[in-house]
Write a protein that binds this DNA or RNA. Structure first.
Lengths: 123, 123
DNA sequence: TCCGATGTTCAATGTTTATTGAACTATTGA
DNA sequence: TCAATAGTTCAATAAACATTGAACATCGGA
């Protein structure tokens, strides 16, 4: 396991990479879930998304999200807690993330944003 | 040549396809140019973008833009006039296109939005 | 100190993608 | 009718991408 997950700095976040990252249905679902959850808790574990695919596939997608600057990941015990980099994204691309999340919400039934599994029950 | 370019209906426009389409630097440059030009003329010819690549490659990218619902193309003589589907996009994904275009404008120097060629001189 | 849980990394696979040049089609104007 | 122009289609190629299972690493708790 790489001990320290690598993140781009705010200025290193690139528009095409962010758009490409968001264009994958699984990654869009992850971002959407993270956004939905924000009022309750800003972070989620990777394992909370096991309904979206195999472990190794999710690790791949989480790495992409992290490397393009959409998410921040920190290690807590054996888990990885991931949250959206809202402030950095808003600074670089004002209004973009909100527009994407609202668009995803509008199409929540077409996009498979909520697979069979229910995500979390936070105390 | 396909005589009638095919376009998705407004409702057929899908978020992941739009984001994927916008994530390619060449297509982003095309969309950006179309947006910049809108005050002068809402349409541009494919040939106006010859600085962005070979003819056949541009035809490929223009087809992608059209098929995902970002642009509308009509035939005028031997030319194809292309414009952004602003109203349809705004109806489906409010604020999204504007956010992308403004973000691209902010990063205009990183992204190669303006290749060697100057685009158009409209009467 | 070992077990179970959580994720990562690797290799392999099949798919999609972008790019190119050549051949082709359609239209305009001489 | 012919040539020039605008753009499409095709085949080929190389690169990137998503997906899987197996093996591995790390940490917390019994």
């Amino acid at each position: 396991m790489s001990r320290i997950p690598l993140h781009p700095t705010r200025e290193q976040i690139e528009l095409p990479m962010v758009l490409d990252c968001l264009s994958d249905p699984i990654r869009l679902a992850i971002v959407y879930q993270l956004a939905q959850q924000e009022r309750v808790s800003s972070e989620l574990r990777c394992g909370d998304f096991s309904g979206l695919g195999a472990k190794s596939n999710l690790a791949y997608h989480f790495a992409k999200l992290r490397e393009c600057g959409l998410t921040q990941t920190r290690i807590v015990g054996t888990s990885r807690m991931t949250r959206l980099r809202r402030e950095d994204l808003e600074a670089r691309f004002p209004g973009l993330l909100d527009a994407v999340i609202k668009s995803a919400a509008k199409d929540a039934d077409r996009l498979q944003l909520l697979p069979e599994c229910e995500v979390v029950d936070v105390g």
